[in-house]
Nucleic acid binder design. Structure first.
Lengths: 195, 195
DNA sequence: TAAAAAATTGACTTGACATTCAAAAATTGA
DNA sequence: TCAATTTTTGAATGTCAAGTCAATTTTTTA
């Protein structure tokens, strides 16, 4: 990758970061291209130099979050831990990450309202890959005798639901740090699969 | 209530029902007033005779769903059941209802994107009332020795998260009826509070 | 340093949709 | 029946924000 290509990539990244901040405040439809641009001291015209349009910009940010989520799982997976510790670690990371990237995760709730068919296909593929990681971990835990789950996809979706909903209510528990909060929630969600 | 008032009320109800169907398909921002009107073989002008505007219309439908949800809890509560059976019954009902009124529940995910401050206040009040029902049931179960929960608000939010997320993935389990599906999910979510 | 390439600007176009409203139609009740 | 009232209509209005683009500025590179 040439210097200039890297520069462009970095700029795109900056725009995505900025977009996520504004989106977190105002949501997809409440955010205008001008809002995103102003936050970066740019004008909206420039944004179209880097992205095809609003939909594309938000799509890219969504993809980045999903890929990062999968990376997060991998980083826990390569540690030397029991399957129970691994799953707990993955859950904790997911919660912490989702609270830091609140906007991106809020957009996940209604993707069909925002994205095109093609985009949805890609998003769903990544989601499936992410879900598969959980299925593996649960399976391993069952084999190890730590978990008791008859229907892994259902248990996994129940688990992911509990995890994804935290963006809706974290602020209510205002006093807690993200880390302490994540640990607390992890304890209760782990019960879904434990023996 | 006079005859004419009742007629108007009924018409409003019909509009709300119709709106929920269209909203379930296209989401809030993807639905135009014309869509809602056409679905009823009306023109959009008439809608403004019954509702102040789009926001008001959707707000009313949201309120109706929340009130109905609270009614659902009450109907289970007055049955002669153990606290464990009561909570399981309430969860099952919630899931079944949320899948039938999918749109209304999807709108719950990002209320701040849609409603005004005043409207949000009312929605949050009803949500709190609903949450309080769960807290009571969990508390009773703890006292009866069926549940083990140290932090009731957190456990309850984890529970509600798992429940509310089902609108996102029910269709994946296509073969199951709503009832069978609800029972399955109830079993796993109950683990969050059980001893 | 000067030509070429990349990046930025902001005024302009465009389309979509919520909302309004005066006129028309339908319903009611005396 | 017919006047009063309620309800519906659809054309007109207004707003808002996405997306475009020719001109300009900045940066690169040779």
């Amino acid at each position: 990758m040439s210097l200039m290509e890297r520069k462009t990539a970095e700029k795109k990244n900056k725009i995505l970061n900025s977009a996520l901040i504004v989106l977190a405040e105002k949501g997809y439809h409440g955010t205008t291209m001008e809002d995103i641009a102003n936050h970066l001291l740019m004008t909206k015209g420039s944004l179209y130099y880097y992205f095809k349009g609003k939909q594309d910009l938000v799509f890219q940010s969504q993809i980045r979050i999903l890929k990062q989520s999968i990376e997060n799982v991998k980083s826990v997976n390569q540690q030397e831990l029991t399957s129970e510790e691994k799953l707990a670690g993955v859950i904790r990371k997911h919660i912490e990450y989702s609270l830091r990237e609140k906007a991106g995760f809020l957009l996940m709730a209604n993707p069909t309202e925002i994205f095109s068919e093609t985009q949805l296909t890609e998003i769903y593929h990544l989601r499936e890959a992410y879900a598969a990681c959980y299925d593996e971990l649960i399976e391993a835990g069952v084999k190890a005798g730590d978990f008791k789950v008859e229907n892994i996809p259902v248990a996994r979706n129940v688990l992911l639901g509990a995890m994804n909903w935290v963006t809706q209510w974290y602020s209510e528990e205002g006093a807690l740090s993200i880390e302490a909060f994540a640990q607390l929630v992890t304890d209760y969600t782990m019960r879904i699969v434990k023996k």
